[in-house]
Computed example of a mutant assay.
Amino acid sequence: MGGFVDDASAVAPGELDLNAFEGLAKSMGIEIIEASAERVVARMPVKGNTQPYGVLHGGASCVLAETIGSVGSALHAGPDRIAMGIEISASHHRSATEGYVTGVATRLHGGRTLASYEIVISDDRDRRVCTARLTCAIRDQR
């Protein structure tokens, strides 16, 4: 997913309208609540993002994680630079069946060419649903 404008990973910070995503992030209902290079918070509805069993799809958790980690990386990268997701891993701890999940991306490393974030996704009862880690490559904008 990294590198596509619809998940904010290839958008320069000056161009970043955090809740005007097109494509995947928009269709999944992701809403950015807070954003800085150090920390990004967003929420996503469970409804519409489930697997056939009625529980939150693990891939939906990964989309939320990559979206907010990419936003943080783009903000860290600064003007005239872009951030592209190059690796994501996720552990799914429990299911969510209703309401919203909230993702909090916290920067672990912010360098000149790489940024890494830990993303914790929790349900409405503040129970951890997923823990993910995203690494983005940072490059000059062409």
Rank of each mutant, 00 (worst) to 15 (best):
R94H: 05
E98M: 00
S91D: 12
D126L: 03
I68Q: 07
H76F: 00
E31W: 00
G110K: 00
V71D: 08
A37S: 14
I119V: 14
L24V: 15
V11G: 01
M84H: 11
H92I: 10
E87V: 07
R43F: 07
D17W: 00
A132K: 06
E15I: 04
V46S: 06
R142Y: 03
Y53C: 11
A137G: 15
A132R: 04
S91M: 05
S36D: 11
P45W: 03
R112M: 10
I86G: 07
A12F: 01
E31M: 00
R125P: 02
G69C: 02
G3F: 01
T50H: 04
V41E: 10
L114Q: 14
F4G: 14
A90C: 12
V101W: 02
S116A: 12
L16R: 13
M28Q: 07
I68P: 07
I119C: 07
I138L: 15
S70A: 03
H76Y: 02
E22F: 00
A20W: 10
L114E: 12
Y117N: 06
S116L: 08
Y117P: 05
L75D: 10
S116D: 12
A96C: 08
C62H: 05
E118T: 10
G48P: 13
T113R: 14
G54I: 01
S36R: 08
Y100I: 07
A42L: 02
A105M: 07
S9I: 06
P79S: 09
V129M: 08
L56K: 01
T135W: 04
V5Q: 10
H93G: 04
M44K: 04
G111L: 05
T102R: 07
D6R: 02
S73H: 02
E31Q: 06
R133H: 01
G58S: 03
A20F: 08
E38A: 00
A60K: 09
S89M: 02
G111S: 13
G85L: 04
L114G: 11
L108G: 09
M84K: 10
G85S: 03
S122Y: 02
